[in-house]
């Protein structure tokens, strides 16, 4: 039983490592493409290049969040420890990506908005998601019993998913200056084709990197568990 888990944990780690390396190379290629082969935006200048990091990171962070929500709900239903470990791995990678979004956002905002920080819906939602993820991971570290930890963090994961629309609505009711969607619009993208191509290229790279890292982390926590060790984060 334990050796099966060990073997599958090792193969997850190996597969995750390969996928993460592919993702890393892909993201590096996306940077090269963004800097050297994509035209500079007329109004925003070089600052616009940050979008090729900011948007894919945000997309993956939200993907992480959705995965945590889904795995949490399924965990309470099926009680499969793999779901709990996967949710935790996703949250851990997600929190790093959220931080990347929260750092790149203000760096872009200063030259374009004229201010480092704005309380607008998407930025604030990201900040609150970051807080939720940090709370989620902190809670995991304070519970020793794996079953208890799984149940507690699943409940936080589900309630957090329910909270997001409220945060978004609340901040929206204050006011907004965030750029409106430029790609997924019914009338078609407002950006030039070369910008969209670079963005999608980077987005795909980030997604691969994200999935690779999550699989590595997931395999690692399963491995620790199978070895009878104690993985404070994932189970």
């Amino acid at each position: 039983m334990s050796s099966d888990v060990l073997a599958s944990a090792r193969s997850s780690m190996r597969a995750g490592r390969v996928i993460a390396i592919v993702g890393l190379l892909w993201v590096a290629a996306a940077y090269v493409r963004a800097i050297a082969f994509t035209p500079v935006e007329a109004v925003q200048g070089p600052a616009q290049k940050i979008m090729y990091v900011h948007v894919p990171a945000a997309w993956c962070a939200f993907l992480a969040f959705i995965l945590v929500g889904i795995c949490s709900a399924l965990y309470l239903w099926l009680k499969d420890p793999r779901l709990d470990a996967f949710a935790a791995a996703s949250a851990e990678v997600g929190v790093v990506l959220m931080l990347l979004v929260l750092v790149t956002g203000p760096i872009w905002g200063k030259p374009i908005w004229g201010t480092w920080w704005q309380w607008e819906p998407r930025l604030t939602s990201t900040l609150f998601l970051f807080f939720l993820f940090v709370g989620y991971l902190t809670l995991r570290r304070s519970v020793f019993d794996p079953l208890e930890r799984g149940r507690y963090s699943a409940v936080i994961g589900i309630l957090g998913a329910l909270l997001v629309p409220f945060i978004h609505l609340t901040v929206y009711m204050f006011r907004t200056i965030h750029p409106q969607p430029v790609v997924l619009r019914p009338e078609g993208p407002t950006m030039p084709g070369s910008f969209v191509a670079t963005l999608l290229f980077s987005l795909a790279g980030f997604t691969v990197l994200f999935l690779g890292l999550v699989m590595m982390r997931y395999g690692l926590s399963r491995h620790a568990e199978a070895m009878g060790g104690h993985d404070a984060v994932a189970g």
Binding site: F128, F131, S142, L163, F166, T170
Partner: peptide, 29 residues
Amino acid sequence: LFSAMTVRVRFGELMLPLLLLPFMMAPLA
């Protein structure tokens, strides 16, 4: 709900505000 969890974990007094305050933002605003 959260206090039922945090009462049984380490640093529960610290965990409760950490978990609860993000949820308070909407009703507080």
